[in-house]
Design a protein around this nucleic acid. Structure first.
Lengths: 193, 193
DNA sequence: ATTTTTTCTTGTCCTAGTTCAATGCCCAGC
DNA sequence: GCTGGGCATTGAACTAGGACAAGAAAAAAT
């Protein structure tokens, strides 16, 4: 039994012992070394990964070749790319890369289907995870539009206080949608007060 | 039978005739006049609405009192606020307002639960809808960060060609995260070429 | 320990986009 | 047929943040 992921999935739906055993039986434990690109541009993402330990980033590359970081995933977060088939014309340019040595519990689309077939109540739990994910993304979109760089950085520190110690600062700039130089200036300004 | 919504829900999961009849039996048809605010700030959103006819906008109000439009929903789109309970501390500041006379097919959280109880395969269809919604939001976040105002406006025209004829232009500016004056200048520049 | 690479900071100049008018437009209400 | 209130446009002055360059500092590799 993997209690860490079981706690996570039980947060909004409660499951019986047997259900959790079934749940665990369909996932695969995997170690992935630092700086491994787990999903390359144009590839179909064939996993949904729960981070047991470590840190990963998910990013896009824009038309001018700039990286934009969409997500940092640390312990107890899920990471995957679900933007499949939406804009079928342009294959998605998403990358997922480990920033530290990582341990995951992973589902493939197939193992997830089998899980749903055997224990349909998990469909609901995954829907709620998706829903929370959407709420977080929507909130971030809103703040990206309406906040200044300083406000965004301060909010980032509140929401993800441990991340700045784990990832290079220019990744945070990329996540916030500002240049690394400007983030440095923002920090200098904050430090003065 | 409401064929319009049935086509929509059947897009990624196919349902039997009986299932669709059950589906239809749990929804409520409702007409709402123009300029009605269907969800006020701080309220819990108790509906999930499919737009049969008309146009609505969903928006936030930021710390400085500015509106930021998160979504325009027209025919065949779903609108709701699922950002419930994520940031429990601050009640959500989301509004949903009709821009035209509208017709909806609506679920409440309760009727949706009853539907899932009677016809569990709809859980899956709603998860996929949610997933697509997330993909769209993520794509928009990405473009909000990496594109210029002109690029964002041109992409908006491609994605939602009918909306500019239906809503005031400053709403589109708000959606794009730019000032109405600047959108006007962008348009002037585009018109020259 | 020292070299090499990556990351962070600071300064200068520059540009996309904002703010704040002022003007004209369109159309809803009387 | 007027009239008043939201809308869009345009211009001028301003600002947040970007691009570029050079150096310092830190981390990784040898």
């Amino acid at each position: 039994m993997y209690s860490q992921i079981n706690n996570n999935i039980s947060r909004y739906v409660s499951f019986s012992e047997e259900e959790l055993i079934t749940f665990n039986s369909f996932m695969e434990y995997k170690k992935v070394p630092k700086k491994t690109i787990m999903l390359h541009e144009g590839e179909m993402c064939n996993f949904e990964a729960f981070v047991v330990k470590g840190c990963v980033r998910k990013y896009y590359i824009d038309a001018n070749g700039f990286e934009v970081i969409l997500q940092f995933a640390i312990e107890n977060a899920w990471v995957s790319d679900i933007s499949f088939s939406i804009y079928e014309t342009k294959p998605s340019q998403v990358y997922i890369e480990t920033l530290e040595d990582c341990e995951f519990l992973m589902f493939t689309p197939e193992s997830k289907e089998e899980l749903f077939a055997k224990a349909p109540r998990f469909e609901r739990a995954f829907r709620i995870l998706m829903q929370r994910n959407l709420a977080v993304t929507q909130n971030r979109l809103f703040h990206t539009i309406s906040q200044t760089a300083t406000e965004k950085y301060l909010e980032f520190l509140e929401l993800y206080p441990t991340i700045p110690q784990r990832v290079p600062q220019h990744y945070i700039a990329s996540y916030l949608g500002i240049s690394p130089e400007f983030l440095s200036k923002v920090r200098a300004r904050i430090a003065k007060n």
